[in-house]
Amino acid sequence: MAEIVTVEKALWALCVLLTAGLFALLLYRKNHRVYPFLFTYVLITLMQNPVLFATYRVWGFDSPASTNIAWGVQGLVVAARALAVAEICRRVMGMYRGIWALAWRMLLVIAGLVLLYSWAVARPRWQAAILNSDRGIELAIAGVIVMVFLFAQHYEIQVAPADRYLAIGFLLFSCFTVLNNTLLEGWLERYETLWNLFGTLAFMASLLIWIWAVRETQEEGSLQPEMLSGVAYCTLAPEINFRLKTLNEQLGKLWYSEAKKH
């Protein structure tokens, strides 16, 4: 147990260093203008450490004040992370106005549904309420990232490598947090030390991915594509759908008629 605590402390220090490195890199490469919400998230994460350090020093580890401050700051970090993810979603799809208008509404609905699901299937214990909330939000973030990339895949939208790596970092961290919190809920007593250790490791891995993503200066705003008139879509979309439907029916007839013969 003592070794785990020592390793965890060392990893924690390394995490602080990496976060500071990411913060400096964002500034140095002027990527803070490109990713203002990511920059804010990194800044809040960086500030989280001295705040927690001071809190524990003043009130001790087990005091209610420390717990409230720690979870309050954590809430702020999670909110900043959600905004940073929203920023990536906008960078991926924002330039396509029509699709983006559809996508962000869908993403909000999906995030809401995931949150509801997460609450519905969790154990109804008030002690686990914070864990459930944290897990629900992380699951919603992961769901949103996956949906955005499914949208990009469906509409064949090119995603900048930096955005892709940032999204991968956020997704892995969110997924890992969900699993980690689920394990903690299952084995609260035995898993507590390992929970911190694995959480730190996951965050460190994400930090490395993010550092890789912003190692070069990114373009502030990509070129806006020339948009078609609204009439074009209204004319063509139903026409194409009708043709595709007829084609499907033909293929269906072919299949069913041949299937009936056998």
């Binding site: 594509p225 609204g230 063509l236």
Partner: peptide, 16 residues
Amino acid sequence: LLRMAKIIARLSPEVV
């Protein structure tokens, strides 16, 4: 043809 439809959707200011 589907791809063409996607391009039209992508470049439209509004989609249904």
